[in-house]
Design a protein around this nucleic acid. Structure first.
Lengths: 348, 348
DNA sequence: ATGATCAATGGGACCGTTCCCATTATAGCC
DNA sequence: GGCTATAATGGGAACGGTCCCATTGATCAT
């Protein structure tokens, strides 16, 4: 591709107006949602000129005077988490339906990156924010919220915030998992999670696991770790769990707190030649490949695409709430059990 | 969260200037990269006022007069494709290092969505564009390119475009796959692809497959299909391939054109109780779960994170090329073979 | 002493668009 | 006929910042 020194710059409203023989205000009306206020003849002249000149509105100029950036910020803790991908897809589709653009920022679970991204989104004057990020509200987030930027928390709650939340019902998810594992005959469980301090949903799941063990006549233990540098520790924890002689007559199962953990645990079990089902394995969140591993891995699926959509819808409703009378909502979706062979014990 | 009727609006440069007792030009200099032109005392006064007032620059105003939106558009054919996810991650990181924001648009392989997204990115005056999308250049894309917007094609070429390209070396990838399958003793192959008309890389892989069969003393057949509504057709094609009596004494293998196909084929084979290795299975692109399925699925991995980074770096170099003397480049990365059990035949 | 250069600072114009008020012509009602 | 309302259209100011030219004072060289 050769860059030509005589590149025609992007046409402006003034140029279209001059070409069509009308005022710039009429052209602005044509493109700005007031087309019906113009005579048919004028509309046609404007359309012809705009097309001839290849006019495209400058959203930055519009945003400056009109006050609308048409941008929605989405701050994600980990875009490579399978959960994030589907949520983003749903959110992006919902934005598009409203003529909005989604700006996705990835924090890799780092609060410093989160602050940077929030500052950047502020500089673009985003019209709303979807937050799926670290556990503590930053000053940057507070400033945005204080200034009235609509905010929806995605799969998170923040302790100092009474904000709209769209998420999986974590308690129901853990209850359903424990029910299933108990029904399938497992009695001693290991719950594996990424660091709970990074996300309230992880904390809620972990707490619920502990709380509900006795109710389900189950015993259990937990391990939390950072998958970036603690894979060895996971291996050891699983080995210890499987070798635990004090529970040698209790059928054992491992419950994984999210998709990233399910993958890591499955790797460890397969590498150690563990027969799935004999040792139960279940993961929170569906994974497209879960049915392929051994006898199939049992999962509790969240409706992720739907959650992404709901987050945008909730945000747009919050944006319409000019006088602040709409109470905060927690929209919690139930998980759906996909029972597969990894939670079927063999008679022997 | 309660919306307070007395929300302080975002502070402007004029307010900071008034508070610090300086001119707006000085404040602009402070935040606009000319800080060293100000006396130390003035810098401190500005900093204190900006912090007190919670000032954040308005990128829209900056973009309007200064001519820089600081946005990079990235148009992806399918954000749920595993390839896309890692590339996006790498690209986003590279953007961040340069103080740029990545705006990701997902087309779901639909040319109409692509046109819409390009128009939208134009309206934001993006400073560059990474394109990984449908096969035909649109008028919208032509207009952007003609106007001098830097452009990098990602895993694609466009027939009418002499643009920078960053991609896997598709020919090397197919050659490596055929080498491996031939070395492992397979003699009759099925190549499965998503529709080649949607992406030049698919077309290149398909053509190379046909071209190189004889060179490798292999025979083969191909099937191309849209995974959205042709799963049954895939099942049938695989059944026919496996039942093909004219090649009953040639060990058979299936080569999958991308990660989405690998998942779909693996599902079919596992569901039909096919023993991997007995029938070979290999996929272009690494998948995090590939090692977990049966004896492990052999893959040819692209360095996806690196490709995403390279795309941004290439784009930024193109942007610096004011006088158009930098020739177009095709930056092609080699795949790396991950041999696993799915391409190991059993003696029997 | 004079002239040139540079550091430091500031004000006005501008960027592309929207918003707001103004004008003109026409139609309908009293 | 006069008055009011409405459709259609337009021009100027403003949005928040950048850019460009101007000014002032200090320093250095001749």
């Amino acid at each position: 591709m050769t860059v030509d020194a005589s590149i025609p710059p992007q046409a402006t409203i003034r140029q279209v107006a001059a070409d069509a023989g009308v005022s710039k205000t009429s052209v602005s009306r044509y493109f700005g949602g007031e087309r019906e206020r113009l005579s048919v003849g004028m509309q046609q002249r404007i359309q012809a000129s705009a097309e001839r000149l290849g006019y495209r509105p400058n959203q930055m100029a519009r945003g400056l005077k009109g006050g609308h950036s048409r941008l929605i910020g989405m701050v994600m803790a980990d875009i490579r988490n399978p959960f994030s991908i589907d949520v983003m897809h749903g959110a992006e589709q919902a934005c598009r339906e409203h003529g909005l653009s989604l700006v996705v920022c990835n924090t890799d679970n780092d609060p410093a990156q989160e602050r940077e991204h929030l500052a950047l989104l502020t500089s673009y004057r985003v019209e709303g924010l979807i937050i799926n990020a670290a556990g503590h509200p930053s000053r940057e987030l507070s400033a945005l919220a204080d200034r009235g930027t609509p905010l929806v928390l995605l799969d998170r709650t923040l302790s100092d915030y009474d904000a709209d939340v769209v998420a999986l019902d974590n308690r129901q998810a853990i209850d359903a998992a424990l029910n299933h594992l108990q029904t399938q005959g497992y009695r001693h469980l290991l719950y594996v999670s990424e660091p709970p301090s990074q996300a309230s949903s992880r904390q809620t799941r972990l707490e619920r696991f502990h709380q509900q063990l006795e109710t389900h006549q189950l015993s259990g233990t937990t391990v939390t770790l950072d998958l970036i540098d603690e894979t060895q520790r996971l291996d050891n924890a699983i080995d210890d769990f499987l070798a635990d002689a004090t529970h040698s007559d209790s059928p054992k199962a491992i419950l994984c707190g999210n998709g990233n953990i399910t993958l890591a645990v499955a790797r460890t079990l397969v590498r150690h030649g563990v027969e799935l089902g004999n040792v139960g394995l279940m993961g929170i969140d569906e994974l497209p490949w879960a049915e392929l591993v051994g006898p199939g891995i049992t999962t509790l699926a969240q409706p992720t695409d739907l959650i992404g959509r709901a987050a945008i819808d909730t945000l747009l409703q919050r944006r319409e709430d000019k006088d602040g009378t709409l109470p905060s909502r927690h929209i919690l979706y139930h998980g759906r059990l996909n029972a597969r062979g990894s939670t079927q014990r063999h008679e022997r």
